[in-house]
C-alpha cells in the first residue's frame, strides 16, 4: 500500500493508505476532520472542497495517494488561535447558511476566490461558486457574505 506524507492544517501526517482511499475519506475517517462534508460523492456539489497546495479541489474526486507531498487546508484549519477566519465571520454575520451542510465547501471555495481575486465583484462570485451547491439559501446571502469576507480579507 502507498505510504504518503503530507501536511494537513500545518500538521505533518504520514499514513499507509489503500489506493482506493479518497482524500475526503482520509480527512474524515482517518484524521477525524469531519468538517469536510461529502454531499453527492459524484463531484458536483462542492461540499468536500479543501485546499491542496493553496488551490480549491473536490476531495471526493482525488485519491489520498495523489495527495502525497502536498499541503492540505480544511475548514478546521482556517480559524487561528480561536478566532474565526474573516470569511467564516462574514458567513455568520450575513446569515449565509441555513442547514449548514454546504458551508465548509462554500467557505473554502470563497477563501480561494478572494485570495486569487481580492477585488472580485458579484459576477465573479457567482461564476466562482458554480461548483458549490446550496439547497437552502437561494445564494443571495452567500454572495453578500463572500463580498463582505473578501473585503475583510483585503483589510
Amino acid at each position: 500500500m502507498p505510504v504518503i506524507s503530507l501536511s494537513v492544517n500545518g500538521i505533518p501526517v504520514t499514513a499507509e493508505v489503500e489506493p482506493r482511499l479518497l482524500l475526503s475519506s482520509l480527512l474524515r475517517d482517518h484524521l477525524g476532520l469531519t468538517g469536510t462534508h461529502v454531499g453527492c460523492d459524484t463531484s458536483q456539489c462542492g461540499a468536500c472542497v479543501v485546499h491542496v497546495d493553496g488551490k480549491p479541489v473536490k476531495s471526493c474526486a482525488m485519491l489520498a495517494a495523489q495527495a502525497d507531498g502536498t499541503q492540505i487546508t480544511t475548514i478546521e484549519g482556517l480559524a487561528q488561535k480561536g478566532k474565526l477566519h474573516p470569511m467564516q465571520e462574514a458567513f455568520r454575520d450575513n446569515h449565509a447558511l441555513q442547514c449548514g451542510f454546504c458551508t465548509p465547501g462554500m467557505v473554502m471555495m470563497s477563501v480561494a476566490l478572494a485570495t486569487e481575486q481580492p477585488d472580485l465583484d458579484e459576477a465573479a462570485v457567482c461564476k466562482g461558486l458554480e461548483g458549490n451547491l446550496c439547497r437552502c439559501t437561494g445564494y443571495q446571502n452567500i454572495i453578500k457574505a463572500v463580498m463582505a469576507g473578501a473585503k475583510a480579507m483585503r483589510g
Binding site: S43, G46, V52, P56, K58, M109, A112, G131, N132
Partner: peptide, 9 residues
C-alpha cells in the same frame, strides 16, 4: 470548463 475546483485538477 466545469468549475474552479475541477479546473484545478
Amino acid at each position: 470548463i466545469g468549475d474552479p475546483a475541477v479546473r484545478n485538477r
